[in-house]
Amino acid sequence: MSDALLALVAAELAFPGDPNPAMRAAQRLAEDILARHGAAVEAVLFYGSNRRSGDGAGLLDLYVLTTSDRAFNGPGTLAFLNAALPPNVLHWRLDGPGGPLRAKVAVMTLRAFERRMRPGSIDTTLWARFCQPTTLIHARDEATRRRVEAAVAQAVETAIIWALRLGAPAQPPAALWRHLFASTYGAELRAERGNRPESIVATAPAWFDAVLPAALSRLASRLPADGRRAWSRRRVAGKALNVARLVKAAFTFDGGPDYLADKVARHSGVAVELTPWQRRHPILAAPILLWRLRRRGAVR
């Protein structure tokens, strides 16, 4: 992997010297996670809409990379679910000096994370998230830091490989990334407005402009062939994986139905009113809710 790409990734992952409210909130949440699970935690990553906006309010997105499924989750059902269909998703709360802090915490092993950054992964969700700007809030040691940097750099390469396989223009960079994110959102059940790819690229143009040539220099000798048939399989698998993870979140995410309803409303503009029965039985209610949301255009 090119030194230029690794250098860009390392600089972006580094915790800033003058952190904004979102970074400080993410750091406090990470410290609380470490206080409870320190020996099991390899790294903590901060990504997503709050990372982009700098706003510490609302629900932050953290990824916790662990030494093993059992080390973090214990020997029971949660460890089994995390190994079978990573990541587990938890609702983390902490009282901060400025008020309560909350995060959606995704948990998986560092080894599983590394595998899902590769172009051959059937699951597009992970590399599509982590080719975007991310902050490494915590790394156990220097060796772990290097592994995370290499995995994120691989996510960038994988994203560009798939963008080119799907016929994206190589220039200008923004056009390639918009094409790529439109494709990856299409491979998931997403409650997003149509301009989401544009807004992601617009929030970090310098990042997307810089990593493209750095990755292309590495890929010059092995430019990918057309991949539309392989992508169609990933579209089918991606939606199935999203449904399975939503079902699993009913067991792991406290207040999961209300969180999902709020997410749909924020990202699609479609309000979802849940009945008491739907809150008590989210798995049974999920099929009809998904059908209604697709009819209203809230989920694609």
Score class of each variant (00 low, 15 high):
P282D: 00
S68I: 05
D3S: 14
W127P: 13
L110I: 05
R234V: 11
W177D: 14
P282T: 00
I33A: 06
G17V: 06
R145Q: 14
S2D: 15
V44T: 07
H138D: 03
A191C: 13
D209L: 12
I288W: 15
K263R: 14
S268T: 10
Q278M: 15
N73M: 11
R266G: 09
A163L: 04
L289I: 02
E192P: 00
A202I: 09
D3L: 12
L6D: 10
T67N: 05
R193C: 03
A103C: 03
R279H: 02
P97F: 10
V64W: 02
T135D: 07
D55C: 10
G297A: 08
L126T: 14
R279S: 00
S121P: 05
T252H: 01
R196S: 10
L60Y: 09
A187R: 08
L180T: 06
H138N: 03
K239C: 02
Y259K: 01
P97S: 09
R145Y: 09
A271I: 07
N195M: 11
G194R: 15
A191G: 14
E273N: 12
T134L: 13
A7T: 14
S183T: 01
V152T: 14
M23F: 05
E42T: 04
A261S: 11
A220F: 02
E142K: 05
N20D: 13
I160F: 03
N82R: 11
D254I: 08
E12L: 06
K248C: 02
N82L: 05
A57P: 01
V152S: 13
L5D: 10
F181K: 04
S49R: 15
A40V: 02
I200V: 15
E157W: 00
L59V: 15
W291L: 14
A10H: 04
R295M: 09
P86K: 05
P276F: 03
Y47R: 04
P87S: 06
A150T: 12
G48R: 11
R28H: 06
Q27H: 08
T134C: 15
E31V: 00
A271Y: 05
P224D: 07
P213L: 06
E188F: 04
P213T: 11
R190P: 02
A39C: 02
F46I: 06
N82Y: 05
G96N: 02
R115F: 04
F15A: 11
L45E: 11
R178P: 05
F80Q: 15
F15P: 03
P133D: 08
S221E: 15
P287L: 00
A168C: 09
A22H: 06
E31A: 02
R129A: 12
A168M: 10
F208Q: 06
V243H: 04
A206F: 10
F208S: 02
A143D: 10
A159C: 09
G74I: 10
D95L: 07
R140Q: 11
G56N: 08
G96R: 00
A250M: 01
A206H: 09
A153F: 11
H138K: 03
A128R: 10
E273H: 14
G227T: 10
T135G: 11
M117E: 07
A11C: 12
R228D: 13
